[in-house]
Design a binder for these strands. Structure first.
Length: 221
DNA sequence: TAGGCCATCTGGTCCT
DNA sequence: AGGACCAGATGGCCTA
């Protein structure tokens, strides 16, 4: 999924500029018209979505998309002006399209770097080997648990009280504890994929502490 | 088929 | 002013 997407993502971008018409002179753009144009030509495929999305997308927030989305704040027609038309002074449509494409590219890069960070995090978190890779939420949850377990170990070595308690959770229990545990401490910090990872962390860390082994690796867990 | 996860686009807002 | 960040929307892929 993600793998295939990444490869194909970037190269298309430059073509899209070519789609843009030469009508630089007018600042006023009829979004409704652009939008309808777009909706007709949709292919539905991820790649082609990218292809055409930029030709359309750069400009025309697809109508359906635009309608249903509530504005966040102070957005009384800031973009769409309610009438489906928008006047933006100073820059041409072509210029705006270019900016949008550049912005898309930056956002893509940003998300890729974020994903790289997730990947690096996955590599350093001890977890039971799974066929599929950890999802993002699982990665974050495990990381948090791991930190908590390490903190416990440190505190224990100092002779202090453990700040976190891990309750052993039955594998079968598929409760909805996840995400709702806003406190993040004390309590069944069950992660989605491996309910027992918490105790695994804890047990392994404690074992390390007892045996004097300092390093912890995924293989150990 | 429904639901989960994800990539991408997009526009608003914040920050430098 | 421009880039970074954020969150909503959308659609694809995969699995139960």
């Amino acid at each position: 999924m993600s793998g295939s997407d990444e490869g194909s993502g970037t190269p298309d971008q430059d073509h899209n500029v070519a789609f843009w018409p030469e009508d630089d002179e007018e600042i006023e753009v009829d979004y409704m018209h652009l939008g309808s144009e777009d909706s007709g030509g949709k292919t539905g495929d991820a790649k082609s979505r990218q292809d055409c999305s930029d030709s359309s997308g750069s400009e025309g927030p697809s109508p359906s998309r635009k309608q249903s989305r509530p504005k966040r704040k102070g957005c009384s027609g800031s973009v769409n002006g309610g009438s489906g038309r928008r006047r933006k002074s100073g820059i041409s449509a072509r210029e705006r399209n270019l900016r949008r494409l550049e912005s898309n590219e930056r956002e893509r890069m940003r998300m890729h770097s974020l994903n790289d960070a997730f990947e690096q995090l996955r590599e350093v978190i001890p977890h039971v080997k799974m066929e599929r890779k950890l999802s993002k939420i699982e990665t974050l949850t495990l990381a948090k648990n791991y930190i908590m377990a390490l903190t416990n170990v440190i505190c224990e070595m100092r002779g202090e009280e453990k700040p976190y308690t891990f309750l052993d959770v039955d594998c079968g229990s598929n409760s909805s504890t996840n995400g709702n545990n806003s406190s993040g401490e004390q309590g069944p910090e069950e992660d989605m994929a491996e309910p027992n990872n918490n105790s695994l962390f804890q047990e392994n860390l404690e074992h390390r502490t007892m045996t004097g082994t300092s390093s912890i690796s995924i293989q150990d867990i």
